[in-house]
C-alpha cells in the first residue's frame, strides 16, 4: 500500500528514497538502475523494495 519503511532483508531505511525514485524513474524517464545507484541503494535486497513497489492508497481509498 505505502512503500515499506525499511528493507525486509537487511533493515536499511529505503522509504526515504521512494519519492525521488518515483518522480525520476516511474513518472520520469530516467533509467531505474542509474537512479538507484545515485541514491546509494546498492544491495539487490534494497533495490527490489523500490523496484517492485506499487502505491495502492488511491486504489483502496474509495472503499474507506
Amino acid at each position: 500500500m505505502m512503500v515499506p519503511v525499511r528493507c525486509f532483508t537487511c533493515g536499511s531505511v529505503v522509504g526515504k528514497h521512494w519519492e525521488e525514485f518515483k518522480a525520476r524513474a516511474r513518472e520520469g524517464d530516467e533509467d531505474p538502475d542509474a537512479v538507484l545507484n545515485e541514491l546509494g541503494v546498492e544491495r539487490h535486497c534494497c533495490r527490489r523494495m523500490l523496484v517492485s513497489h506499487e502505491d495502492l492508497v488511491d486504489v483502496v481509498s474509495p472503499y474507506q
Binding site: M2, V13, K16, V57, S61
Partner: peptide, 15 residues
C-alpha cells in the same frame, strides 16, 4: 527522526 522524508501514510480529503 533521523530522516525527514520517510512517508508514513498518504492522506486523502477528510482523512
Amino acid at each position: 527522526p533521523a530522516d525527514d522524508n520517510v512517508p508514513i501514510i498518504e492522506l486523502k480529503d477528510d482523512q
